[in-house]
Simulated scan of single mutants.
Amino acid sequence: MGREEQVEEREVLDSIFPEEITANLQSTNPKLLPTSTDINETEYRVSVLLDLPLDEEDTNEPPTVILHVRYPDAYPDEAPMLDLSPAQNAAPHPLFSVANDKDTLLSGLEDTIQENLGMAMVFTLVTTLKENAEQLILDRRAAKAREHEEVLLAAEREENKKFHGTPVTRETFIKWRESFMKEMEDERIRQEEERLAELKKARVKEEKKLTGKQLWERGLVGKVDEGDDEEGGLAEGVESLKVTT
């Protein structure tokens, strides 16, 4: 009974995948690969070309996955034996690798296999494999876009720091106030020192001037007649005065 169901399934697959069955998988263009390939009566390969939406950042050709199917005698009551391989000579895709993603993709078929035991399931497995592989690439596209967006946002944040001051907190205010008060005190001390220096300088200059008494005692000023202008007499004596320091 298992063998009869296997033959029927292959006939259905031939109608779904109408490409000519051939053993040639050497084409470098995945679009020219046959959809299914017979190896023997119970084993064949299905070429699964992924269908991806256009993306400005990802201009690579969509990858192709080769699904190897081998029927055990009791299939479909027993799960088929599956394997995956890349299309021969196909260009590598930056977001997908059959070698690296095979375990993930095969494990993603386990639930489908269990749900369809007792029924022909290869077409469902092909559909599930295709959807899972496409979603894997789309998720990586989205992650790459988020990473790129984060880089742009980080650069923008760094640029915006130039236009924003340090946020004011209680700690930063106290620190600023202490610095400001110290600066004001230093300025007050400086100004006081300058004022004292000016006073000292003026006092020295004042000491260098001789008083009228000193001028009289040193005989530098003559007697002033009552009729004479005291201010004039004093001025005449002062005119001839030379003070040396």
Rank of each mutant, 00 (worst) to 15 (best):
E115Y: 13
V98N: 02
L136E: 07
L196N: 09
L215D: 01
T172K: 03
G118W: 05
S47C: 05
E134I: 01
V243N: 07
T244S: 15
E150W: 08
R141S: 04
T112G: 10
N160W: 09
N116C: 06
R195I: 03
Q26D: 15
E217K: 13
A235R: 13
L138S: 01
S36G: 04
R195Y: 02
M121W: 04
E231R: 09
F180V: 12
T169R: 01
D73R: 02
S15M: 10
E192H: 13
A202I: 02
G219K: 15
V98D: 01
M81W: 08
P63V: 00
T211W: 07
R195S: 10
E187P: 12
E193V: 04
Q114T: 02
N116A: 05
L129K: 03
K200A: 09
R188V: 06
Q88S: 04
R218K: 15
E41I: 14
K162I: 09
P76D: 05
E4F: 06
L125P: 03
L241H: 04
E11L: 12
T42C: 07
K208V: 03
P167F: 09
Y71I: 02
R45C: 06
L95I: 00
E150A: 08
M81C: 06
E131C: 04
H164C: 14
R188S: 13
L32G: 01
H148V: 05
F123K: 02
I189H: 06
A79T: 12
V168K: 09
Y75R: 01
P62A: 14
K242D: 11
E134Q: 10
R146V: 12
K223Q: 15
K102T: 10
S36R: 13
L13N: 04
V224N: 08
E156T: 08
S107T: 13
S179K: 10
P80V: 01
T64Y: 00
A155M: 11
D51F: 07
I113E: 09
T37C: 11
E8G: 03
E230Y: 14
K242P: 01
E158N: 04
Q26A: 10
D14N: 02
L153A: 12
D228E: 10
